[in-house]
Simulated scan of single mutants.
Amino acid sequence: MPFTPARPDPSQPAVRINLLSDTQTKPTPAMRAAMAAADVGDEQVGDDPTVNALCDRVAELLGKEAAVFMPSGTMCNVAGLLAHCRPGDEILAHRTAHILSREGGTHAALGGFQITGLDGADGKFTPDALRAALHPRTRYEAAQTVVSVEQTANIGGGTIWSKSDLEAIVTIARDRGLATHMDGARLMNACVATGIGASRMSDGWDSVWIDFSKGLGAPIGAVLAGTRDYIDAVWRWKQGLGGSMRQAGIVAAACIHALDHHVERLADDHANAHALAHGLGQIDGIAVQQPETNLVFFDPAGAGISGAAMVKALRAKGVLLATMDGRIRACTHLDVSADMIEETLGLIRDVVRAV
């Protein structure tokens, strides 16, 4: 795969239904108005009032002492783990975790860390699997420093780590002197689906972040939270990685608007995902994983068509999907309506009938 993303093919019909990812959301008119009206300053020297307000709000939301605004969730993971580890350290995470499968080996390249992938169903390892992966601290093996989870587990199917497993992992990590890091790219989806508040969901985790450019609908931005000393250390890496910004209040205002208006409506995305999964389950030959949040993974091989071929056929009809980990992934978000879900199901039936 080339490193440079392909530009849209002008010979293809316009995308009418975009189920590629919740990163595809466009700012709403109200969000754009909030951005235009934002009070701004120099974020790099702590002088942007809107960024400061966002960081204070997210720190309170997650039950942490302090927070830092980042351009992306990937930078939250990279800078966050650079602040936790030293070269030669080992991080424990699920083998499909974003830090291992989707961040270009940056942790090894910049920090000299190794990430050990743990097995487990649906993108989650069990507390017992974590215990089994731990080893005594000796000079012969990498120092195990951090345990990381991804809430929700993307490649696992948008699945939710249970509160009891999160608590057990924290207890095991503390007993062994390991830090805990939560990649909370879709944490608010998990909170809305379970009714568990964000501070309770992340209680005991040393570092945790939420992404605003996915289901919350902002054009850019994520916020990482932890202790004040930890956030000071993260800031050093943010500066070195080029993540410090100037009048960033324009985009921070979009994130504040998202917290005010786009959290509870995540339930609509979950309902649309369930409707899509239900409809797919009625089509002979399609195997579908029942969604817990806004991600629907399905495999049409039993209907006589590969995932790649179906994605191509639907793209020709103006529907954008992706293959991931050998299956098709559909992602619902605020720019996808219930009517679009029904239309997509009709088009998938047409493709299967044609086969």
Rank of each mutant, 00 (worst) to 15 (best):
T25E: 12
A308Y: 10
A309P: 07
A179C: 05
E264A: 11
Q144T: 09
P71R: 04
A301N: 12
K317F: 04
I256G: 02
V78I: 15
S199V: 03
N52H: 13
F125S: 00
A271F: 04
F3D: 14
I169Y: 04
R327L: 00
L19Y: 12
D175S: 12
V263C: 09
D284H: 12
A322D: 13
H94A: 07
A248Q: 08
A287C: 02
T74W: 14
V351P: 14
H262M: 03
R200D: 15
A53T: 08
S101C: 07
C191D: 09
A193V: 05
T332E: 09
L266N: 05
T152V: 11
L280N: 09
V288C: 13
I196V: 15
A330W: 09
D269N: 15
F298P: 06
D47F: 08
H98L: 05
K238L: 15
I305T: 08
H98A: 05
D206P: 03
G184Q: 00
K312A: 01
C55D: 07
A303D: 04
M245G: 04
L130I: 06
A38F: 03
L187K: 07
P127Q: 12
G80Q: 14
G307D: 07
T96I: 00
I250H: 00
Y230H: 15
A121V: 12
I250W: 00
H270C: 06
R137K: 10
L54K: 08
I172C: 15
L276A: 01
S72P: 05
I169W: 02
A198P: 13
Q144S: 10
Q247T: 15
L134A: 11
S244A: 14
V234T: 09
Q151W: 01
L92M: 03
P5W: 14
E60F: 03
A6W: 13
T126W: 09
V45F: 10
A36R: 00
R32E: 11
M245V: 06
P5C: 13
P8Y: 10
G242L: 12
I196F: 12
T126A: 12
G117L: 08
V45S: 13
G177R: 12
T138G: 15
I220M: 02
H135M: 08
G88N: 12
G184V: 01
L54R: 00
H181L: 05
F298I: 14
